[in-house]
C-alpha cells in the first residue's frame, strides 16, 4: 500500500517534469468541420510521404468550434462547411488574425428514385419538405399525396442515419432546421444499403451523397430539384457552378496569415490545392472545376505575396 502510494506520487512528479521540456517539432494544427475532415485527412495522409518530418493534426470540433479556436490563434488552418460568420470575423479582428479562405471541394446531395419510376420529372424544394418534415410522419405515405397525378402507391423512403452530416445538411437545406425530419424511413449509415433499397423498390425514394449515385448510375434514376429557378439535375458541373441549389455547398479551408509564413504550412496548402481534385473525389465529394482550382491557387499565391 505504502509503496503503491509512493509510486503513484513519483509517477505524477515525473509526468509533470515532462511538461517543461517541449520540443519544437514542426506541427500543423487543423481543426473544424467533420464534413471537410475526410478531405483534409486524405491530404494529410498523402503529405506524410511528401514531408515526413511535419506532423499534421486534425480535430473535428465542427465548423463553429473550429472557428472559435482559429479566432484565438490556436490553429493554423480551419476546416469549414460554411463561410465564416460576421461574429467570427469580429473575433479574428479583435485578436488581429488575418486569413484567407480557399474553396477546396463541393458537397452535393442526390435525390434518387427507382429506374422504373416513370412519373417523377423533378421535385420542388417545397415537395421535398412536404415529404421529409417531421409533420409528414405517418401522414404523407403515398405518392399521390405529393402530386395528385402521381400513383396511388406507397411511398418508400430511404435516407442516411441521423448521426451523419449528410442527414443534418439535407434537413437543414430542405426542412429548414438541421436534424429535423420524420422518423419513419429506412435509415442506414451505409449509403450502399440505401442504394440497394431504392434500386430494388419501384416506389422508393432516397437521398445520399452524389458520389454514390455516380457509382451506381445504372441502378438508379437521378431526379432534378427545383430550388426556385427551374429543375436542375446534380452533376459535377451543376454542383460546382452552384446552379444545383440548395442541395450543394462549397467546402472551405481558412488559413491563418501567421501560419502561412511558415515553410511547411505553405507546402501543405499548395499540396492541398494540387491534390484536392483527386482526393476529394476519392472520399466522396465533388471537385471544383479545374479553372476554379487555378483561381484558388492564384488567390493563395497572392495572399502569400501580400504577407
Amino acid at each position: 500500500m505504502k509503496t503503491m502510494l509512493k509510486l503513484s506520487f513519483l509517477l505524477m512528479v515525473v509526468s509533470l517534469a515532462f511538461t517543461s521540456c517541449k520540443k519544437d517539432e514542426k506541427t500543423i494544427k487543423i481543426d473544424g468541420s467533420s464534413t471537410v475532415f475526410p478531405i483534409t485527412e486524405a491530404v494529410a495522409e498523402e503529405f506524410r510521404s511528401e514531408m515526413s518530418n511535419v506532423r499534421v493534426t486534425i480535430g473535428i470540433s465542427g465548423t463553429g468550434g473550429g472557428f472559435k479556436k482559429f479566432g484565438r490563434g490556436e490553429t493554423d488552418i480551419s476546416d469549414a462547411s460554411r463561410p465564416i460568420k460576421q461574429k467570427e470575423i469580429d473575433i479574428c479582428k479583435e485578436n488581429s488574425i488575418s486569413y484567407v479562405d480557399l474553396t477546396v471541394a463541393f458537397d452535393g446531395l442526390a435525390v434518387i428514385v427507382n429506374p422504373e419510376n416513370t412519373w417523377v420529372d423533378y421535385f420542388t424544394v417545397e415537395e421535398l419538405k412536404k415529404i421529409w418534415e417531421p409533420a409528414a410522419e405517418g401522414k404523407i405515405v403515398k405518392w399521390n399525396q405529393i402530386r395528385p397525378e402521381w400513383p396511388d402507391q406507397e411511398l418508400q423512403l430511404f435516407g442516411p442515419g441521423v448521426a451523419s452530416g449528410t442527414f443534418d445538411y439535407f434537413t437543414e437545406a430542405v426542412v429548414g432546421e438541421s436534424g429535423s425530419s420524420r422518423g419513419d424511413f429506412t435509415a442506414s449509415e451505409d449509403d450502399n444499403v440505401l442504394v440497394q433499397g431504392v434500386a430494388t423498390s419501384k416506389y422508393g425514394l432516397g437521398f445520399f451523397g452524389l458520389a454514390y449515385y455516380e457509382e451506381n448510375a445504372n441502378k438508379l434514376k437521378l431526379v432534378a430539384v427545383d430550388g426556385g429557378e427551374g429543375p436542375v439535375k446534380p452533376s459535377i458541373e451543376t454542383v460546382s457552378n452552384g446552379t444545383y441549389s440548395p442541395l450543394s455547398r462549397p467546402l472551405f479551408i481558412y488559413l491563418n496569415s501567421k501560419a502561412a509564413k511558415r515553410e511547411e504550412v505553405k507546402k501543405f496548402v499548395s499540396f492541398y490545392l494540387k491534390n484536392a481534385p483527386k482526393l476529394s473525389k476519392e472520399v466522396g465529394y465533388v471537385p471544383l472545376p479545374a479553372e476554379e482550382y487555378a483561381v484558388q491557387t492564384k488567390k493563395f499565391e497572392d495572399f502569400l505575396k501580400s504577407l
Binding site: 509526468s15 509533470l16 515532462f18 511538461t19 521540456c21 517541449k22 520540443k23 481543426d31 467533420s34 475532415f37 483534409t40 485527412e41 494529410a44 495522409e45 506524410r48 506532423r55 499534421v56 493534426t57 486534425i58 480535430g59 473535428i60 470540433s61 479556436k69 490556436e74
Partner: peptide, 13 residues
C-alpha cells in the same frame, strides 16, 4: 481539443 487524426503516438504528456 482531442483530435481525430494524429499521425503519431504521444511521447510526452
Amino acid at each position: 481539443g482531442a483530435l481525430a487524426y494524429v499521425p503519431f503516438a504521444p511521447k510526452t504528456p
